[in-house]
Design a protein around this nucleic acid. Sequence first.
DNA 1: CGCATCATTGAAGCCCTTCAAGACTTGTGG
DNA 2: CCACAAGTCTTGAAGGGCTTCAATGATGCG
Lengths: 255, 255
Amino acid sequence: MVRVVDPLVRRLRNLGLDSEEELRAILPLLKFKGRINRGEDIVQAGSSPHYSTVLLEGAACRYKITENGRRQIFTFRYSGDLCDFSRYMLPESDEAIAALSECTVAIVRHEDLQRAAALYPNLSFALWRDAMLEASIFRERLVNIGQRPALPRIANLICEQMIRLEAAGLDASTIPLTQVDLADAAALSTVHMNRTIQDLRELGVLAKSTRGIEVVHRDRLFEIAKFDGRYLNLPQHTMKWMAFLGTQGHPLLAA
Amino acid sequence: MVRVVDPLVRRLRNLGLDSEEELRAILPLLKFKGRINRGEDIVQAGSSPHYSTVLLEGAACRYKITENGRRQIFTFRYSGDLCDFSRYMLPESDEAIAALSECTVAIVRHEDLQRAAALYPNLSFALWRDAMLEASIFRERLVNIGQRPALPRIANLICEQMIRLEAAGLDASTIPLTQVDLADAAALSTVHMNRTIQDLRELGVLAKSTRGIEVVHRDRLFEIAKFDGRYLNLPQHTMKWMAFLGTQGHPLLAA
DNA sequence: CGCATCATTGAAGCCCTTCAAGACTTGTGG
DNA sequence: CCACAAGTCTTGAAGGGCTTCAATGATGCG
């Protein structure tokens, strides 16, 4: 039986919350919020709610509209991802999250989170780690946009989405994003995005498909991108890192 | 009497560590490390030391060398800034920090930090906050590089440096960075950086000066940049935020 | 005084953008 | 079930912002 919270459970496990006890204590704090259509905001810029949001199903993005009306997408979010938990620490955050497909979302009230964090320090720690991971993605995006021409830039972006979808246990053969979405994330015009995607198709990497990027030659894509996914800190790295904490001990891990 | 740790104290206060008791407990953990010349690394990529570094005096940058040999600068660091405290949480971080002027640095051993963090939860909290602040700068840099043409892009970059230098109590009339440094941070060629700086001089905003960017018309610079510094979360914003925590309570603040 | 770093200038050209229009797909209401 | 609208994808043409290459002028330091 597949439950709607499974991707979230998987995500929390990847963040170091692996005990059944912790998960049983945390999951009931989730309150189902509803479904949201593509194009609508899941979290609005400037709002300061007393809760944070979890994306149970669907694809979304963290973005900002610039002063000249353009949209810069910082990161994508998929099933199981935390949307705006930085708001738990920094309530006046300017972050906005938009749905890129039909999304199912749930919320956690900050006061519940706070109580749980006091009981389970691993939780505070997982949230912190999640925030650091996002910062790592920001840095990679900076390198991508600042230094790489369109072809490797787009290839890198697609590689990241594949790896993250796979790590979340989702289908990664077709990335659920439009060319417009990718263009706003890569800081390229949609016209040039379209032409470069056609180049990737001629290279045998992508297939023609409407609504979504279909990858047909994964290895060649990674080769073009020269993709180095270490910045994503996947579970195998997490192991090393948990081992380190085990030897060192950590105030946030102490009961 | 001006001490070499004054900028650091100021920085810690801005991060919410305002009690004398906490500061008296934390400062002795600092061990003087030495002076480092421009061009040398303060923190090397890939290293996993058991300590973190503080920049007591000088200017530095967090950067990465890309696969094609270019340097992307993520953020600048000034007197009093924490260099690599993310290493405390994520030891395998790939961050590298280079000195951009002659720098004085000190270190804190992680085991000392850990003991202090257990006694003073405000410390954990300040470090977390510092990391979130850096992530906020990354996002702004993404908007800057992804969406703005050279002139406002460079203007924005300079504005940020002025504000941060002022917030640290340092002289902000001349930004202690070369055109090469700025170019690597703005993801522009040095040639184009030079030409755009000349444009800013013709606009009466900058003065001709070797080694350093001299700002002579601050207001006009901010106007050109349309600078909105809220992302820097300056002390006045911190106040609001501390007040929020006061009303809400927070597990990391509980003893 | 010579060397290294930094700043400057000119010329050529390409990557990418903008504008504009058309084809295709999807969803919705009559 | 069709028609229309909205969103997505595609294509062509023109142009400009920025890069690269290459060389020269400044500045400062040992």
